[in-house]
Design a protein around this nucleic acid. Structure first.
Lengths: 208, 208
DNA sequence: TGTACATCAGTGAACGCGCGTTCACTGATGTAC
DNA sequence: TGTACATCAGTGAACGCGCGTTCACTGATGTAC
């Protein structure tokens, strides 16, 4: 990270990347504003031009995490193609892949203790992620007999909770991961299949 | 917390309580060794008689958390009485109640980023908690037709993940809780019922 | 029951360190004419 | 195309603060005889 010009060019980005790297190394508690400045190759006063304080930087990291998560999940869901069940499976895999590959983002989004209501933009970014899960649940719900069908919202919450539980207990890419005698993907997929069967959706023929 | 004697009497306990109080207030990142000493009414050097450093104190808090969690869950499961399904429901409620009422413990156990392998006693305490869930899953599994029955271990992991997901997203007793249009208890119970139905266990008559 | 002594669990002063934050400043960039 | 000027995004020195940690110490407790 060498610098030729007096002006950094894109310090805001660089600080966010520095934060991610430090969070990845030492956990979300283990990075300081000064650390981030140092890693970005800049004086300790410089970050104040871009963020009010450390918390503001953290909130921005979390916001970006949600945005990237949204992009990844949207792509995986793929508008429900080729069919909702396959798309849901893709969605689940993408969820866990993100938690595994981006533990710094995932931790900042869900474990840094940032009250979601702090920043409207943060709240909105989080809501957009949930909207994808909700959309998937809607698509699944329409396949159920109308009477006795649980609300799609609840289905979405169940699936999210299961995925998040698995990700945060067993699927993280950092040191706090718990050992598991199977792949997190398989655990999630099996759980969702049982759950869907409970809703009355018959298991599709195994494939790919 | 006034003190009459020169010797504190039970500083170890007092430090753990202080840590819990501080974690509850400011999150698991927001307490220091010195803070804990101050709150316990003792000089900053005193804690060193009882804990190697801050991390050792944190690990001990987490260990105690697991122990208390174990006690609470054991009582709720009640040996599977009066029947496994009702006992499981009690277990789920106790799980969420603990996360809600003891957010400081819960956070130290699952979100403080303490690698579970650090301390053998910590690992063991965590394993004992899981053993209860596993035992419950065994009891449920025996009610299933033998062929095609998924391993009890997997059932236990599904239920744990769902409960943990709900607890950590919606059920915590601190500021990072997300809003939910229903009670976390109800969300968990509904999810478990659908899941059990997917396993082939028919919904018991509503009661209590 | 009393005394001497060892051990234990605390004190309080001291230290080095790095963090957060501020300030007047300055080099670089953009723009008006 | 060149010049003057405003604005922006950084510097670097300085500060107060509280943390972690150490040290020789001391008051309290337990025990041997």
């Amino acid at each position: 990270m060498s610098r030729r010009t007096y002006h950094h060019g894109n310090l805001r980005e660089a600080l966010i990347n520095a934060a991610l790297e430090l969070i990845g190394e030492k956990g979300h508690a283990g990075f300081t504003f000064a650390d981030a400045a140092r890693l970005a190759g800049v004086s300790p006063a410089a970050p104040y031009r871009h963020f009010r304080d450390r918390d503001a930087l953290m909130a921005d990291v979390a916001r970006r995490g949600f945005e990237q998560f949204e992009a990844v999940l949207t792509k995986a869901w793929n508008g429900g193609a080729p069919d909702p069940l396959r798309a849901l499976r893709q969605l689940g895999q993408a969820y866990l892949a993100f938690a595994r590959d981006e533990p710094a983002y995932y931790a900042s989004m869900f474990e840094a203790g940032i009250p979601p209501g702090t920043d409207p933009a943060l709240l909105q970014a989080g809501d957009r992620v949930f909207a994808i899960l909700r959309q998937a649940a809607e698509a699944i719900a329409t396949k159920l007999p109308e009477q006795g069908r649980p609300p799609a919202l609840m289905i979405a919450l169940h699936i999210w909770s299961l995925a998040h539980g698995i990700a945060s207990l067993f699927g993280r890419g950092d040191a706090a991961r718990r050992k598991l005698p199977m792949a997190p993907d398989d655990l999630l997929e099996a759980g969702v299949l049982v759950y869907l069967q409970g809703l009355g959706i018959t298991r599709p023929a195994a494939s790919g």
